[in-house]
């Protein structure tokens, strides 16, 4: 009886934390519960959540991708430049996505073939990417002026912001891939025990390479969305996004050592972070203090999470 309750609690703990924060938020601020604010939050969250989806793939294999923030900027800049040169939204979007995927390919290649730890490789490509975008743009933003392109960031379909539609699509596909495909299964097993998975005939190198490509691709998409929403590609765009994405994954309860985790918990983790920042803005908290609150919440969440894990193990 008792153990069943604690098991259920453990399973849905992330969602519970979100609900708690939502309830508290609606008490603390009147404007929080309005539809307009709700849509606003989700649109903001979609930026981090899409990157965090890719990060979940990477972390499930036991890796990490620090380069995503820089990739957002590079992809945004290349995409905006393509748009300016060709006026083709189609080309611009594709250039952004391919740029992201290529970054992922480089990360994955060095990690798999040269056996360099992911932390080091992606730390290097993070610096590399930021350098590339600064040199390429010479430090100034590239404006985008094509309406079709801007739609990606600002448009609505049936009253739903387009970035939120992208978010939904990304998570549905990610969920399907992780739960139902051989590739998804291999990701979990590889994260759980690389050697046993390799010896079971899985091409672990290819799986690992693919997760970095996915992470890069999703960061590339985010770069395009961000440029479209802001109306320009900023060379400093995406700074610190890797940390937000990792935070969302951790809040979602995915194990940093790999092999265990659930993709929808990541989106809940991203929502927790998003609601929190939104609330602080609504409450007129000093914007410099938001990071303090974020840090405390992450620490708390992880501590509580650990307690839960111990509880469900020993009892």
């Amino acid at each position: 009886m008792n153990s069943k309750v604690s098991q259920l609690l453990a399973k849905y703990r992330t969602a519970l934390v979100l609900v708690m924060i939502l309830v508290i938020a609606s008490f603390l601020s009147d404007s929080f519960l309005s539809m307009g604010n709700f849509i606003n939050v989700i649109r903001q969250v979609s930026i981090n959540a899409v990157i965090a989806a890719g990060m979940t793939f990477v972390i499930l294999t036991g890796g990490i991708d620090l380069s995503v923030g820089s990739v957002v900027a590079v992809a945004g800049a290349f995409s905006a430049a393509t748009l300016t040169a060709t006026q083709s939204t189609f080309l611009a979007v594709n250039v952004g996505m391919v740029t992201g995927a290529i970054f992922g390919l480089v990360n994955g290649y060095v990690i798999v073939k040269e056996k360099v730890p992911p932390f080091i490789v992606t730390l290097a490509t993070m610096a590399l990417g930021r350098g590339i975008v600064l040199v390429y743009t010479n430090g100034s933003p590239i404006a985008v002026k094509v309406a079709a392109f801007k739609f990606i960031g600002k448009g609505y379909v049936f009253g739903i912001p387009f970035p939120v539609i992208i978010l939904l699509a990304v998570y549905l596909i990610a969920f399907y891939v992780l739960q139902n495909t051989k590739f998804g299964r291999n990701i979990y097993c590889l994260g759980g025990n690389r050697e046993a998975t390799r010896l079971s005939g899985v091409n672990v190198g290819r799986v690992e390479l693919m997760v970095y490509v996915i992470s890069g691709l999703l960061a590339g998409i985010t770069g395009v969305v961000l440029a479209a929403r802001l109306g320009s590609a900023q060379p400093t765009a995406g700074t610190g996004y890797e940390l937000d994405a990792i935070a969302a994954v951790i809040l979602g309860g995915t194990s940093m050592t790999g092999g265990q985790g659930f993709i929808f918990s990541t989106v809940i983790g991203a929502l927790i972070l998003g609601v929190l920042s939104n609330l602080l803005v609504l409450m007129d908290v000093n914007p410099f203090a938001t990071n303090i609150v974020k840090g405390i919440v992450i620490l708390l969440a992880v501590v509580v999470d650990n307690r839960f894990k111990k509880l469900s193990k020993t009892k």
Binding site: Y188, G192, N193, E195, A196, Q260
Partner: peptide, 8 residues
């Protein structure tokens, strides 16, 4: 080490 993914 070589046979099982213990956490799955």
């Amino acid at each position: 080490i070589e046979g099982l993914v213990l956490i799955r």
